[in-house]
Design a protein around this nucleic acid. Structure first.
Length: 358
DNA sequence: AAGGCGGGGCG
DNA sequence: CGCCCAGCCTT
């Protein structure tokens, strides 16, 4: 192994002590901190990926209530699992999680493996989640480097590498391996993240309240605001669709399931067609040809704009009153408003659904 | 190494 | 508006 570690020149024992003492004093009372059940810790870590704590809390309660144990989740209906995740985003997280717990039941006698390699090879478990679950649930001294940790340590240790680059994470993992408390890896890792969430925030960090201020090189040089260095910029694509809300005389609607892969995989929606595929005045014949359905009338509902991290959707919502609906494929259903309630819809289509309720 | 993959909240 | 959030997977 090459000895190219960055110089960690802070007082390590003092830093550990200051961080852990602060964490034990100031940590938030969060539902996944009630105990160290590896399953609950695991669920929380998946939910918290790219998602704020306040957003996760209600989802965590509902999810654990519906699927209290690893076995319960393994045996659950996939649609119900997806429904429990509805609105949380990044839906592959929960499909991977269920696949992984099924793996644990099949291969590890329904016990979350303590072995880093075994746990890390499970679906949806990357380097961060691996270290987080193993340290928090099992007390293993493994690094758990997320965005918080990179921000906090970039400031304390004055690390100027671009955190948008994939290999940079390894630098921080090496730093954590030198810093981490072997007596209490859980409090150390959670302390770094809690510090990032409460004190060492992206903008306007509260350095005057920081329990490890005396260790912080960025603060001592007054450059905490310019760290971490991050280059990646997002460019969004614009996409415009007609959303076809086809309603029959019984107040039922056609819903279709999205493909198994890609954006909003396996979620349900009102049928959509890209506006560039058909001009608005030809929608009726299009519906006739594509869905074999005769429209009696066409109305515009409130248009919906929806922003993803990488796409902007402009949804032109068209309500078609139809004499009789029919499905034109296995991925379609004719459903009442009540029945739609039990299907997982992306937020953009929940907005449309809410219009129909009025 | 870079891009796809949600949704919400903040300045 | 752009940025960030307890990231992972595919190419």
């Amino acid at each position: 192994m090459k000895n190219n570690q960055l110089p960690v020149t802070i007082n390590i024992p003092q830093f550990r002590h200051d961080l852990i003492t602060w964490f034990e004093q100031e940590q938030r009372d969060l539902p996944w901190r009630e105990n160290q059940d590896p399953y609950r810790v695991w669920v929380s870590e998946i939910m918290l990926q790219q998602t704020k704590v306040e957003t996760v809390i209600p989802y965590f309660h509902r999810f654990i209530q519906s699927f209290p144990t690893l076995e319960a989740l393994a045996e659950a209906d996939e649609q119900q699992v997806l429904k429990a995740w509805e609105g949380l985003g990044y839906y592959s997280r929960v499909r991977n999680l269920q696949a992984a717990v099924r793996e644990v039941v099949a291969d590890y006698n329904a016990k979350v493996p303590e072995d880093a390699e075994q746990f890390g090879n499970l679906k949806g478990v990357g380097p961060y989640t691996q270290g987080a679950v193993l340290s928090i649930a099992y007390g293993k001294a493994e690094p758990a480097v997320d965005g918080n940790v990179m921000r906090v340590l970039s400031r304390i240790l004055l690390i100027q590498e671009d955190i948008a680059k994939a290999k940079t994470r390894k630098i921080f993992e090496q730093a954590v391996r030198q810093l981490i408390s072997h007596e209490n890896p859980s409090a150390f890792n959670q302390g770094l993240m809690e510090l990032g969430a409460l004190i060492c925030t992206p903008r306007n960090p509260s350095c005057l309240l920081c329990p490890v201020q005396v260790h912080c090189k960025a603060y001592s040089e007054g450059i905490q605001h310019s760290l971490p260095v991050k280059t990646k910029k997002t460019k969004q694509k614009d996409e415009a669709y007609y959303v076809l809300v086809m309603e029959d005389k019984d107040g039922k609607y056609i819903l279709e399931q999205r493909p198994n892969e890609g954006l909003l995989a396996q979620m349900w929606q009102f049928p959509m067609v890209a506006t560039k595929e058909v001009s608005e005045n030809l929608l009726e014949p299009y519906i006739m040809e594509r869905y074999q359905i005769n429209c009696q009338s066409i109305d515009q509902l409130q248009p919906v704009k929806h922003i993803f991290s990488h796409i902007k959707w402009d949804l032109n919502v068209i309500k078609c009153r139809c004499d009789k609906l029919r499905v034109s494929g296995p991925a379609q259903q004719i459903l009442s408003l009540d029945e739609i309630e039990s299907y997982p819809l992306p937020v953009s289509h929940q907005k449309i659904y809410k219009q129909l309720l009025q």
